[in-house]
């Protein structure tokens, strides 16, 4: 079939191809406790980092490392399980849902982390917990929303990344951290 297709043939072929991609994306399953484990790990990471940075020295400073290590372990395990469960790998799922590189997830994380850090410096421990939990919930919600959009438009979403926003948010967060620590 190398002749030029008619408009009807072209439309039918394109629709069929796009529908197949959507079907594939919708058949991808998440491992058990995927969102909940990522949410808990992020909340833990926000809380431990805030407390560890506020403490600056002594054993609480190690909480920063512990929180990051727990998140890294949870992320790695869930992504390996995702690949094994589906026989497919989607970088965008790793970036957007687990690593939170989407604009909304990044901003949610930065807001929650900043709030937790300020609360920790102020000794408001209940507010640290509240900010960390809110950050975890918001982060997961952003990932769920992205997944829904991906399943409706996998071709357009699978390779769209917001690394610039991610880098900028990271820079802002790092600068804020330095200023906070210096001020302390």
């Amino acid at each position: 079939m190398e002749s030029r297709p008619t408009p009807d043939e072209a439309a039918g072929t394109l629709d069929e191809a796009r529908a197949a991609a959507v079907r594939l994306a919708r058949e991808l399953q998440l491992p058990s406790h995927f969102h909940s484990s990522v949410g808990v790990a992020i909340a833990l990471q926000i809380g431990t980092s805030a407390v560890g940075i506020a403490a600056q020295d002594g054993w609480p400073a190690w909480l920063v490392v512990v929180g990051l290590a727990v998140f890294a372990a949870v992320a790695a395990v869930q992504l390996v399980r995702f690949r094994r469960l589906n026989g497919a790998w989607v970088w965008a799922v790793a970036n957007q849902v687990v690593l939170g590189s989407g604009t909304a997830a990044t901003l949610t994380y930065c807001l929650a982390f900043t709030a937790a850090l300020l609360a920790a410096f102020g000794g408001l421990w209940w507010l640290v917990v509240l900010a960390a939990v809110a950050g975890g919930i918001g982060y997961v919600r952003c990932g769920q929303l992205w997944l829904r959009r991906y399943r409706n438009d996998p071709v357009g979403r699978a390779h769209r990344e917001s690394t610039v926003v991610f880098a900028l948010a990271g820079l802002v967060a790092a600068t804020g951290l330095v200023l906070l620590v210096a001020g302390h």
């Binding site: 079939m1 190398e2 297709p5 072929t13 394109l14 069929e16 191809a17 796009r18 197949a20 991609a21 959507v22 079907r23 594939l24 994306a25 058949e27 991808l28 589906n86 026989g87 497919a88 790998w89 989607v90 970088w91 965008a92 996998p154 071709v155 699978a158 390779h159």
Partner: peptide, 27 residues
């Protein structure tokens, strides 16, 4: 121009990498 290959290529854009049997079943 072969619809099956267009479908295969379009499906490949939805993922970064896919295992042979998974792709076979999907197609």
């Amino acid at each position: 121009q072969a619809p099956a290959r267009l479908k295969l290529m379009t499906m490949m854009t939805a993922v970064s990498e896919i295992e042979f049997a998974t792709l076979r079943d999907a197609l």
